[in-house]
């Protein structure tokens, strides 16, 4: 009985996770410059992986520990990779979108 309920909750988590993937990739297409794309894709796909893995873990309870380790690993490393890539791209000369309102990082370099 309780396993059936957990199974359906897990299905809901999996479905929400895959919707976040879809949102992330739509953001990847629609956003105007690299940094906004990075914002859209990094956040949504990280939460997507987290939700997806927890969902599968609820559907198959004995897998939960290993799935949580994978999820923890993804949540810890995805922002590190995104930050490193953002800084590297900025230093490699990729410009912000022309309608951006402020750029304090550039002011730092001019000092």
């Amino acid at each position: 009985m309780i396993e059936d309920i957990l199974h359906y909750i897990g299905m809901a988590f999996v479905f929400v996770g895959s919707l976040f993937f879809l949102l992330g990739t739509i953001g990847l297409i629609r956003m105007p410059d690299l940094y906004n794309r990075m914002q859209a894709s990094t956040k949504t796909t990280t939460l997507g992986v987290l939700s997806f893995l927890v969902g599968v873990g609820l559907m198959e309870l004995q897998w939960m520990i290993k799935l949580l380790i994978i999820a923890l690993f993804v949540v810890l490393t995805a922002p590190v990779g995104a930050s490193a890539l953002a800084r590297a791209s900025y230093n490699a000369g990729i410009k912000l979108w022309e309608k951006s309102v402020v750029d304090k990082y550039k002011e730092r370099e001019e000092k």
Binding site: T42, T45, T46, G48, V74, L85
Partner: peptide, 10 residues
């Protein structure tokens, strides 16, 4: 690279 990152998560 950003697209690839998203794809690896998927």
């Amino acid at each position: 690279a950003v697209a690839l990152d998203a794809l690896t998560n998927i």
